[in-house]
Amino acid sequence: METLDYKALGFWLQAIQALITGAVFLYVWLTNRQKANTSAIKELREELTRSINDMDDRVIRVEKDIEHLPTHSDMAGLHARVNDANDSIKSMSGELKQMNHTLQLINDHLLNNRGH
């Protein structure tokens, strides 16, 4: 019968143990890396969800503000009213110029004919 070489057997057991330890180390390293990636993706997803919700709220506020703005027809009506007011002011300006001229004539007549 052959005798067992305990030194060689011990070497091979230590080599197998080292390989198993290395495999466990590699497994733990890959798993932790995957957990870190998963955690980063989850945080990014939550941040994007918050940003989208904030953007939705802002869009809703803008839409509500836009509802209260005057329409094109409202602006056209306002433009027509401003034009009418402008025409009235021009008419009154002309009338005031005529009245001023008449008053100047009356004043000149009174000043020039005072002595007579």
Rank of each mutant, 00 (worst) to 15 (best):
S73M: 12
A40D: 01
A80I: 03
L48Q: 03
A85P: 02
L4G: 05
F25A: 12
S73Q: 09
V59Q: 01
K42C: 06
M1V: 08
G22T: 11
A15H: 12
L44E: 08
R81Q: 07
Q104G: 12
A85N: 06
Y27G: 14
K7C: 13
T49V: 10
D54Y: 01
K97P: 01
L13C: 15
H72P: 11
L110C: 00
L111G: 02
A15Y: 11
K97N: 08
V62Q: 01
L30F: 09
I41L: 15
L110M: 02
V62W: 01
L26W: 05
Q14G: 15
E46L: 05
D84R: 06
I41P: 04
A40G: 02
T31L: 14
N107L: 06
Y27L: 14
L19W: 12
L30W: 08
E43L: 06
R61T: 06
I106K: 06
Q98H: 10
Q98R: 06
D65M: 10
V28K: 05
T21M: 14
I52D: 04
L69Q: 02
N86M: 07
T31F: 15
G94C: 03
A23C: 04
A80R: 07
N107G: 06
G77Q: 07
I106N: 12
A80E: 08
N37G: 08
L103H: 04
M92H: 14
N53R: 05
E95S: 11
L13R: 14
M1H: 11
K35P: 03
S51E: 09
R33M: 11
A8R: 12
Y6L: 14
D84L: 07
L96K: 03
R61N: 08
A36Y: 00
K7N: 13
E67I: 04
L111W: 10
D74G: 00
T49S: 14
L30G: 05
H79S: 15
T38W: 13
E63T: 01
N113Q: 00
V59P: 00
D56Y: 03
G94P: 00
A8F: 10
Q34V: 05
T71K: 01
D56G: 04
A23W: 10
R50G: 05
R61D: 08
V24K: 09
S51D: 10
D57F: 02
D87C: 06
R33T: 14
A40Q: 05
E47P: 00
G10D: 15
R33A: 09
L13S: 12
R58C: 02
L96N: 03
N113F: 01
